[in-house]
Design a protein around this nucleic acid. Sequence first.
RNA 1: GGGGGAAUGUCCCGAGUGGCAAAGGGGGCGGACUGUAAAUCCGCUGCUGUAAUGGCUUCGAAGGUUCGAGUCCUUCUUCCCCCA
Length: 418
Amino acid sequence: MPEPAFKSEFLRVLQARGYIHQITHPAELDEAAGSGVVTAYIGFDATAPSLHVGSLIQIMMLRRLQQAGHKPIVLMGGGTTKIGDPTDKDQSRPLLSHEQIQANIASIKTVFAKFLSFGDGPTDAIMVDNDEWLSRFGYVEFLRDYGVHFTVNRMLAFDSVKARLEREQPMTFLEFNYMLMQSVDFLELERRHGCLLQMGGSDQWGNILNGVELIRRVDQKPAFGLTTPLLSTASGAKMGKTAAGAVWLNADMRSPYDYWQFWRNTEDADVGRFLRLFTDLPLDEIARLEALQGAEINDAKKVLAGEATRMLHGAAEAEKAAAAAQAAFEEGGLSADLPTHETPRADLEAGVQLADLAVAAGLAGSKGEARRLAQGGGLRVNDRPEPDANRLVTAADLAGGVVKLAAGKKKIVLVKPV
RNA sequence: GGGGGAAUGUCCCGAGUGGCAAAGGGGGCGGACUGUAAAUCCGCUGCUGUAAUGGCUUCGAAGGUUCGAGUCCUUCUUCCCCCA
């Protein structure tokens, strides 16, 4: 897109840090953001008990919004999750129960407090659940009030719908209604909180546009939409999916150490971009880090990992993760902060089959996998490759009170007798 | 309502028309090279087990034919297309 010179601090920051993909009315939004407090929202799904890194760019955008003196609204999709967003999905999702969804929301909530400051002040963040209004509509009422504003012709033209149809994959009427509900969300937030702007990933562009138009048509009020680029790594992989599964933000689903490792393993080509998006470091500092060449860029990755982990888990956890990584990778030593697996001392004294231990410690999904891993030279006991997964691990393998198990070079678990 | 097609290794795509643990690819994992990077090359990728031959469970669901079924037959489920 062209480079409009934004006047408002908010849009200037977003632009400089690479958050902007599309804006519905750039000049008007810039004007609004430059002359007063803008209330903006982003919707989040509640399909899992935690958000993952894929949502982090959205969370960070709300943080930037607040930093620039505006008011963020976190919209939890308690109602829309009951439907399931068809965007980018090939198949319908299994429907979750109301209780599951509410439990997920409660769990997700804890993360936002780390990035935003909530409260009653004019620029304090608030959190709302769209189940509050969506589940109250009667069918006839909903159709009369909102259904009239949407034409099927138009809805069929949206990418999310078109893609499903073209691939000859079924799309239920339930899912087809998702974009109506999301539009109504925006309208509802505009009425309740004077919300002016909806943000989201570029895949949400169509849904956001619908909301913008609904508000403009029904309430004759200004409304704006802004999307972020779809985040993928430089080599094209989707952000946030690794072999170990999604990179969850909740600490109980992904340890601070693993979270630190995720960022540490960023590709060279992504370091600058990620620093801008996911840390609060000043841009000139980032430019300096980004310019590092060869092996030195690893320093930039450590800064990235440290900053990102600190923001989510706090300074203490970030330092522990960094120290554990340094000990494990740079000094070949042990650190008590590495992930540990506890095993009964009596079992260890009797001897535990290595394959069983590797599975129990989460390094392999099955004994067969552990065996293959061992045969391929990827399974290490106390830093020595161990080709025989049948061998017994005993108390004799204890070194410094623990047995160090590794699958590959990066997944390390300390087995601790208890 | 009538006619024609489709569902395959629970990550995805996809070959297979009586001997199949099932081609090929993507993805993922491991190894080598490096810098805990990328690219490249090599290996692995249903569970379980051995020094090794093995055992078990898989091709939408349930039955059937057969020494033997992903493959043939019947019924069912879901989806797609055409006609009404």
